[in-house]
Design a protein around this nucleic acid. Sequence first.
DNA 1: GTAGGGTTAG
Length: 573
Amino acid sequence: MSTESCIRLLNSCRNVFHIKQVHANVLINGTFNNLIVANKLLYFYVQHKAINDAHYLFDKMPMRDPTTWSVMVGGFAKLGDYSNCYATFREIIRCGVTPDNYTLPFVIRTCRDRKDFQMGQMIHNVVLKHGLQLDHFVCATLVDMYAKCMVIEDARKLFDIMLSKDLVTWTVMIGAYADYDAYESLVLFDRMREEGFVPDKVAMVTVVNACAKLGAMHRARFVNEYICMNGLSLDVILGTAMIDMYAKCGCVDSAREVFDRMKEKNVISWSAMIAAYGYHGKGKEALDLFHMMLSCGIWPNRITFVSLLYACSHAGLTDEGLHFFDLMWEEHAVRPDVKHYTCVVDLLGRAGRLDEAWKLIETMTVEKDERLWSALLGACRIHGNMELAEKVANSLLELQPQNPGNYVLLSNIYAKAGKFEKVAEFRDMMTRKNLKKVPGWTWIEVDNKTYQFSVGDRSHPQSKEIYEMLMSVIKKLEMAGYVPDTEFVLQDVEEEVKKEMLYTHSEKLAIAFGLIAIPKGDHIRISKNLRVCGDCHTFCKMVSDIMRRSIIVRDSNRFHHFNEGTCSCGDYW
DNA sequence: GTAGGGTTAG
């Protein structure tokens, strides 16, 4: 049997049994000794995931070449059998075979998937030893490996020294930054286009992802136009990424439009849309979509339920949330994990049912984590329950003594209760442990540009006008009954100083700038890295009413849509 | 015989 006819036969194989028939045939007529034929057989076994058959054949082969080895390494990598993947690679080195640009990406990818930085570095040395550092395939996987191991600087160094980069390498680098620094991710995307690369669908998904992380609406619109103009069809992955992008940019209606346009939807697309309604406080819409999903025969997974419970919690749909919490295991065989419990603790906590939340935590059997405790601590803060707060704080600080957020939350609770000696105690504790409060930042988009503000910021070129606008707005608000809520200033300082600090919170400065620079009738969109404070929340509601402006705030937890004096969160966040 | 893509809790 000739090599060509063997390959033809293998191509027509539908299952492992067929491959075995071809295998028997080549053994009989002697073509087995032909290395090309043997390698092809090996490859087809691997393609059909018959790794044991592949291994048996590999052991019997009278000769092996780099292709033989790479097919085996790739087979193990594909199956996720990392120990055999590594072992085969070590065997290659031990036998003195030169690993090639086919074998190395498989092993590097295994390091990436396992976040095995140490092994990744060792393989990088092998790459250098064999002078393969300029190969596109090798280099792209190395960049990806370093990025997924969170060593973005090493990834970037490798990327920068590549003489010729291809679309895949660019995509890997852009995708790496999407998780780490979404702004830089978009800068790289622009650079890639300037260098003449035409992004394909996969590249667009990574950019869509970066827009979602950044919440950059003007970029989101551009990306959408690009996708339409270049006729990139909305497949299930690109469509889902776009739902998430629009939702995280504050436009849940556009997210729904994409969702409705998608021809193919799977459980991830449905979950993304349910989560989108959740961030925007649209609990009823999330529930309706969930029922529609079931009637379409899509089976919900753990993430669907996290999104659904989150939506119930943030919309104050307590009974509905509890109902789904029971149902998820009983009717959908999804066992609640700590994330589901956290949503339910939040759900009960917000509704003031703190005792039930505490009991639920006490009786649950899954492992507790710090976010579960901080959900309850957040509820203690809203409802001013000092006694429970202290109990919860003990568990929380024991689990996570190094997180400054926990100390801030706790001192907030003490401040609310007027216990400033306790606030000072916590502040000292933070200093002793060298923990710094995460500084608050607010971003606003004006004319396709992003501006950043911190508390008391005067770095903006129009700073003078911004402060004038802010003071005139505050005056109008005060006339309408606005009383600054200085409870949100942690420091034990004079009331007047507290007021001053509160007035120049980064959210207020960004909104004042928005009032100057964004035409009436357009939304003022701002993003904040922390949770919006209660006083700024009141401020936004009043500005939306008195100044007749629609304000959309994305904070670290959810979206707030302010219109005519009310917020979509129903003051429940 | 090789590399890049989507949803989740405070």
